[in-house]
Deep mutational scan, measured.
Amino acid sequence: MATKAVCVLKGDGPVQGIINFEQKESNGPVKVWGSIKGLTEGLHGFHVHEFGDNTAGCTSAGPHFNPLSRKHGGPKDEERHVGDLGNVTADKDGVADVSIEDSVISLSGDHCIIGRTLVVHEKADDLGKGGNEESTKTGNAGSRLACGVIGIAQ
């Protein structure tokens, strides 16, 4: 089992970053940390998408990683996509320092995120509470600013 993974985020604009993942036990939580720069100040949706395909930019990554066919939600919700990591918060300089621990994603097994795409979005994720159909699919997080395929790390 891989215990570490990394993702280099890039987009068409100024947004870029490096996100690290570490899972010490196969059924334990995954620590997610790193930094994203070039964002507007505020909240930005942060999700693992189904495919590791960036051939047409971030759009070819498909929908959120959702092997259990659930509705979109927040990272602490029972009803959520596996890939729903909530929001990252950018400061006035456009930098989001990421520090998350998640017990639904994994670096092995059915919820493995390796080979899938991590995406940072234009807007805040409403965590499935926006009151419309799009909220239950995407959290109304808007366009995909930057993305990268999650790969095994040393």
Rank of each mutant, 00 (worst) to 15 (best):
R70W: 08
P67D: 14
G83M: 02
N27V: 13
N20R: 12
F21T: 02
I114Q: 06
G115F: 01
A153V: 07
D77P: 05
T59M: 05
T40A: 12
T55A: 06
S135R: 00
L85F: 13
G74C: 09
H121N: 00
N27K: 15
D110G: 11
N66A: 11
E122M: 14
S35T: 14
G34Y: 03
R80Y: 01
D93F: 14
G42T: 05
G142M: 06
E50K: 03
V149H: 03
S26L: 07
V88Q: 11
E41F: 05
N66Q: 12
E25G: 12
R116H: 00
G34K: 03
G73V: 00
C7R: 01
T55M: 01
V95N: 15
V82S: 10
R80T: 01
V119H: 00
P75I: 06
L85M: 15
R70K: 12
G86E: 04
S106P: 10
T138E: 02
V15C: 13
V6D: 05
A2G: 14
Q23S: 13
S26P: 04
S26W: 15
I105S: 09
I113D: 03
G13V: 12
V30E: 03
P63T: 06
D53F: 00
G131S: 14
N132G: 13
D93M: 08
T3I: 05
V104G: 11
R70T: 10
A61L: 02
K137A: 04
A56G: 09
L9N: 02
N87E: 03
F21E: 05
I19A: 07
E25M: 05
V8E: 14
S26K: 15
E41A: 12
P67A: 07
G83R: 03
S135E: 02
G74E: 15
V15D: 13
R116Y: 02
A141F: 00
G139I: 03
A61D: 02
D84K: 00
V88M: 06
T3H: 08
V6H: 08
A90E: 06
K71L: 12
G83L: 02
I100H: 10
P14G: 08
G83K: 03
G131T: 15
V8N: 11
K123E: 12
F65V: 03
K10V: 15
I36D: 01
I18D: 05
V88R: 06
G62M: 02
T89D: 14
G13K: 09
G38R: 06
T59E: 03
E25C: 06
H72T: 02
D53S: 03
K92N: 14
P75R: 12
D97I: 13
V32M: 14
V30C: 05
E50R: 06
I105V: 12
L43A: 07
K71P: 05
V8S: 06
G94S: 09
I113K: 00
G13P: 05
V30S: 07
G34F: 02
C58L: 01
A56C: 06
D93H: 10
G38W: 08
N20K: 14
T40E: 14
D77W: 11
D77L: 14
K137M: 07
P14E: 05
D12I: 11
K31R: 07
D77T: 14
P29A: 15
V119C: 00
G34N: 02
L39K: 01
A124F: 10
S35L: 14
V88F: 07
Q23V: 13
E101Q: 08
A5K: 00
T55S: 11
H121R: 00
D93L: 12
F46I: 13
L127A: 09
S35D: 11
E79Y: 06
V48N: 01
I114P: 04
G45E: 01
G94P: 09
A96F: 04
N20Q: 07
G11I: 09
A90T: 08
V8H: 06
A56Y: 08
G38E: 07
I36Y: 04
E41T: 05
S26R: 13
E122D: 13
G109E: 08
E134C: 03
I19R: 02
A124P: 10
I113C: 13
V120A: 08
G94L: 11
L39S: 07
Q23C: 12
F46M: 11
G109R: 09
C7K: 02
G139L: 00
K129N: 15
C147D: 01
N54K: 08
G13M: 07
